[in-house]
Design a binder for these strands. Structure first.
Lengths: 153, 153
DNA sequence: GCGATTTTGTTGAGCGTTCAACTATTCCGG
DNA sequence: CCGGAATAGTTGAACGCTCAACAAAATCGC
């Protein structure tokens, strides 16, 4: 069976490469800053953020995996590391004996509080300061469309 | 010295999280597809693409690093791996005795030719098919702005 | 020219992610 | 209820990336 490849035209090509370059440069930059200033990669920062926003600062592992868009394996390894750092604690889930609950410790909350201002400043400087309000709005709609498209199918 | 943190307002918050989720989901998806169908991560695919587009299919390591937006160390490791796969060969640079030149082999070109249609189809399905022409245009401008902003400063 | 500096590229250790395999528990059909 | 399927989470190996340290050659300043 022959299937025609729908190649990218030059405009699409440029869009795709610019997007790739931009998103990689952005996440590399923020990751490096966070690692330097707070001693944690961005993925771990996100885990702490999610836990901090939730009642009792505790979440089932699988919920946390969904919220951070990571695989169970990845989260398992990550929480193991956060646990040895003393930022997260694991407890058995009372309602499901297979389950584990990740709990943000006070030290974890403090680490997050220390890291947040610098990181937010970085997001602002590297992303929002570069774009017009209209572009920010466009980016939000585009991103939400993509999220729906990627997680829907 | 007290510096006020310019926190994100709820709209910016949502924009930032949607963008993070979308770009991670997109690159994860494409990376997984490429790994499954072509046995290479997206970063290696990009190296082969850049080499394939250039006269004689050869580039100095440092140029290749710039073009792919990667560190010298990363590229060194990557090319080492591509070399054992037989897709790239390294030669001494005739004009600079410090230098190395990465050359795309015929096998590498063939691997790229085999991988490209599926990957391009993936880019189209996961990105362009989801967006309106206007949004694609917006995304191009936003990305180009960000690239300039991130690589300029 | 010559010494200091910069540039080029590599290396190895440490870390985070992926993938497949696995255990334990819960859910579901009959 | 009971047996099979689905779900929750972990584990270890392989891999790619980062970082710092390094060697070698080119370039700059005087």
């Amino acid at each position: 069976m022959v299937v025609m490849t729908r190649w990218l035209d030059p405009d699409e090509q440029q869009t795709w490469r610019a997007f790739l370059t931009a998103s990689r440069a952005l996440s590399d930059t923020l990751d490096r800053e966070l690692q330097r200033d707070a001693g944690m990669p961005h993925a771990y920062y996100e885990i702490l953020v999610r836990l901090s926003e939730v009642p009792d600062r505790r979440l089932r592992m699988s919920e946390l995996a969904d919220l951070t868009g990571s695989s169970r394996s990845r989260l398992s390894h990550a929480v193991a590391r956060l646990e040895t750092a003393g930022w997260v604690r694991r407890e058995d889930c009372p309602t499901d004996r297979r389950g584990q609950v990740a709990v943000l410790t006070d030290a974890g909350f403090a680490a997050l509080a220390a890291a947040a201002p610098g990181h937010v400043e970085g997001v602002r400087r590297h992303l929002f300061d570069a774009l017009s309000p209209a572009q920010v709005d466009q980016l939000r709609r585009i991103s939400e469309t993509l999220v729906a498209h990627l997680t829907g199918s």
